[in-house]
Design a protein around this nucleic acid. Sequence first.
DNA 1: GTTATTTAGTGGTCAGACCACACCCATCTC
DNA 2: GAGATGGGTGTGGTCTGACCACTAAATAAC
Lengths: 215, 215
Amino acid sequence: MVKVSDSLVTNTKVYLEIVKHLREMISADNLKSGDKIPSERELTERLNVGRSSVREALRALELLGLIETRRGEGTYIRDFRGNQLVQLLGTFILQDEKAKLDVIETKNLIEMDFLRLVLNRADEEQLLKLKSLVEADQLNDDQFFYQLIEMADNYLFSRIWLILKDYYNSLDIKNVEYNRNSFLMLIEALAAKDEKKTLYAYRQLRNLSILTDKY
Amino acid sequence: MVKVSDSLVTNTKVYLEIVKHLREMISADNLKSGDKIPSERELTERLNVGRSSVREALRALELLGLIETRRGEGTYIRDFRGNQLVQLLGTFILQDEKAKLDVIETKNLIEMDFLRLVLNRADEEQLLKLKSLVEADQLNDDQFFYQLIEMADNYLFSRIWLILKDYYNSLDIKNVEYNRNSFLMLIEALAAKDEKKTLYAYRQLRNLSILTDKY
DNA sequence: GTTATTTAGTGGTCAGACCACACCCATCTC
DNA sequence: GAGATGGGTGTGGTCTGACCACTAAATAAC
């Protein structure tokens, strides 16, 4: 029987003990995403604590994106690759406001980064598929880049970009006009695995100064 | 009077509404770290919800490191840097090998990005100062790059890097041996505003393949 | 066999009760 | 008067028990 209520001694909060216990349980039983964890009431009994404490722990882990909870069913471990931590911190921190330019710049930098990744990872087939979508005018700017970022095969990076994108859109700058030709040029450059040409196409797409080598 | 108990309608959980409300409150009242937020009982009344729901929200934010709570005193906003939560996530989540690789890759990409920024923004004085610090062996790897990222003058970007850095350190990979010469080479390349040389120095520092042009 | 219906289990929420602790301030002691 | 003492009050910490809403599986009805 595991005792958690050492809080009398350890002076640490019960809900933190529960978090710790869950962590141990997960690693001990080798639980993976999708697996179910014991119900709140069962944890209450097993750990000899109040249900409210169990819930505090679970809710905290839920907000962290580590578990997922379905009413009437139970609580499950979640697929946490590149979880929402950045998002949460972002929304809390970025209230700072002053940094519109930072957002734009950062988004541009990130986009150029994953263009470099795509340069080395995308196969021709993917690019052809993307090309056909563009030619059919099926994609807006965000969607176009989302396709690309998926090819970069870096989940964490894609999460960061998604956040930046949302943030960027919330700035309603809207100087971005849809430009199919720039898209096609980009794809072509990627297919040719030509970094210089790729970045050139990107700068043109984003109306960045092409002459200066700012970033 | 703010109503939160739209949960009947919105179907979102009460504690999430409270988190949201707190976020709004913080930005509306322009609260900063160290400031006090209303007591649990007051929030209970103001928002017309149960105290346990308020606590679920507060405990979640506490685990995230966004607030700090002192028994007998109250709850305070905290200086939120990446801190402990990253550690938590680290041990909790990052067993996934691919996720680890993503973290490493992303951190490298970000670092190269701000090297590019520094290339165009740092003045000689800053670089000289950095150089003297390095020569005196005053900086470890993280500190060295933190100095650099400050020169890049992009607050958002530095935030992202700080988080990634903590992530990275929680992986305890530790293949990075201190290398003063690489640091100096990097600084020299930056001072010369030579992008190619800069990135070359960086790759060497990080033991990245220099021949292939992976990223 | 198929379809309703019931039932048990689960998360979601609230209210109330204590406890432990920090702080303020009136009071007491010297 | 200065310092120590000790309640009072407010705050977080925890537990309990009671409902509600929902899901899924067992059961009943056809």
